[in-house]
């Protein structure tokens, strides 16, 4: 395109001038993404550790409070998120094959499923807000042992941070969906789809651990 570049001949429009080759650019982008994901795991591990420490301190409160969560709704959201991971993976596959229409379709499914996830979360949250099962000083629910309020604090912190990642995910998914409608991806250049996919799978991974720890384990 318009960029002056040492190499002559064919030049990909999304090949930035400070990278030797397009594959080098893609590998750098993926390395950056994996470093970011490694950091995300460390970040989430802190709230998991906090959760286990409080659970150790207040076993009865955590047990009774966890029993108030809806396993059907949690399972539904798990299935929704796993399915969205499949459609995301298929979107990346379509991008690898240079099928931009397929990318748009699968990303559409992924965004729709992410929205379903947030709608289910909305119903779960509003139920808890009505009952006063809120963090810290806003906790007004009665009839659970000591420590239950800390359980709900951790519940809102963990699912809230995860939900924030879903919302940001919907934003970046929409961004690459728009790029795919402009036919910008090809077998040669699909790093943005791949990296947004990696991010989306990480959000799914976090939920794979959040779900049993919050909803299932007695």
């Amino acid at each position: 395109m318009s960029t002056a570049h040492a190499h002559g001949g064919h030049h990909h429009p999304f090949h930035a001038h400070h990278f030797e080759t397009l594959p080098q650019q893609e590998a750098s982008a993926r390395m950056g993404m994996w470093l970011f994901l490694g950091q995300e795991l460390l970040f989430f591990s802190a709230v998991f550790v906090a959760f286990f420490v409080f659970q150790y301190m207040y076993p009865e409160g955590f047990l009774e409070a966890h029993r108030t969560l809806s396993i059907p709704l949690g399972t539904l959201n798990t299935l929704v998120l796993l399915t969205s991971s499949l459609t995301m993976a298929l979107a990346v596959r379509n991008a690898q094959l240079g099928d931009n229409k397929g990318v748009v379709k699968q990303l559409g499914f992924t965004i729709a499923l992410a929205t379903v996830f947030m709608i289910v979360k909305y119903f779960e949250y509003s139920g808890k807000i009505e009952k006063g099962q809120l963090p810290g000083q806003w906790y007004t629910y009665e009839g659970l042992p000591e420590g239950a309020s800390i359980f709900f604090t951790m519940y809102f912190v963990m699912t809230g941070l995860h939900g924030l990642h879903i919302v940001i995910g919907i934003g970046v998914l929409a961004w690459i969906l728009i790029r795919a409608t402009k036919n910008q991806f090809s077998a040669e250049y699909y790093a943005p789809v791949e990296n947004v996919g990696l991010y989306w799978h990480l959000v799914d991974l976090i939920w794979i651990f959040l779900f049993p720890f919050l909803y299932l384990i007695e």
């Binding site: 470093l35 991971s85 995301m88 799978h201 794979i208």
Partner: peptide, 22 residues
Amino acid sequence: VVGYFMHLKYDDRFYSVILLSS
């Protein structure tokens, strides 16, 4: 999810090293 959906099984081992150090 990591091995197949995130392609780590078929990707450069370098990315696996980043994940494992984390």
